[in-house]
Design a protein around this nucleic acid. Structure first.
Length: 231
DNA sequence: AAGCCGGGGCT
DNA sequence: AGCCCAGGCTT
């Protein structure tokens, strides 16, 4: 049954993605490796739509690695202030430029090298592998975590970083040819349909097998009226 | 495992 | 006025 659910989710979300995907500049073919990596740092704990609005402000000021390497820490803080988390992000980007200078302008060759340079965590490392090295890796964030948790095993939410179950699910689910697209599909679907608040379970293309949907149906049946809480 | 960072958009 | 957001680091 687990395998049926996995294949159903992969198939349904890829099909949904082809019709309903969100359009972002960092996803387009003309986005450089530099833009792809830096964008992941801009996206941390920040709405994708917010980053999309801010995108040109940042990349017109720092169009490539060379421009970024010329920036001071104070400059970076100032530029990223409207985005929030600006001190952390500025420090991270600054460490990134230091790391680049050390290796003579070359990007890390593998994920271990990236982690060792000490300015990113698991999420950005996976993004680096997925987009730059073209390995099959999950963009496992709160959104993917919520979607997988609801679909496969609704229950208490644990921090993604300590939830081995969700990590294994995420690694299983992205084993498809269109791995990058499926990752984006999950993020988009979690943002638009499988939302944290008020998920649109009624029109969800996964609700045939979704455990969370089944549970909420039972609850609303027992309550007598058609009301159902989201949560 | 919990606290903290953070401005801005959405409800 | 409160909640939330493509995480990661410190305690």
């Amino acid at each position: 049954m687990r395998e049926v659910m996995v294949q159903y989710l992969q198939h349904r979300l890829l099909r949904w993605f082809d019709e309903n995907q969100r359009v972002f500049p960092w996803r387009e073919a003309r986005a450089t490796k530099y833009q792809q990596i830096v964008s992941e740092i801009l996206l941390q704990r920040t709405k994708a739509e917010t980053v999309a609005r801010y995108y040109d402000t940042f990349f017109s000021k720092y169009p490539d690695w060379e421009a970024l390497c010329g920036a001071t820490l104070e400059e970076l803080e100032e530029v990223m202030r409207p985005l929030g988390l600006y001190r952390h992000r500025a420090r991270r980007l600054y460490k990134l430029t230091e790391d680049l200078r050390r290796r003579g302008g070359q990007l890390p060759g593998d994920a271990n090298e990236l982690r060792d340079s000490g300015f990113v965590g698991l999420y950005v490392t996976n993004a680096f592998e997925l987009f730059i090295l073209r390995n099959r890796k999950p963009l496992l964030d709160v959104n993917m975590s919520r979607l997988l948790k609801r679909y496969f095993e609704p229950g208490d939410f644990i921090d993604v970083r300590f939830d081995k179950e969700v990590q294994e699910l995420a690694n299983d689910i992205i084993e498809v040819r269109r791995c990058k697209e499926l990752n984006w599909a999950i993020l988009d679907y979690a943002a638009l349909v499988c939302r944290k608040r008020n998920p649109l379970c009624g029109e969800c293309v996964l609700n045939k097998y979704c455990k969370y949907y089944a549970q909420s149906r039972e609850r609303s049946d027992q309550s007598g009226r058609g009301e159902h809480e989201a949560g």
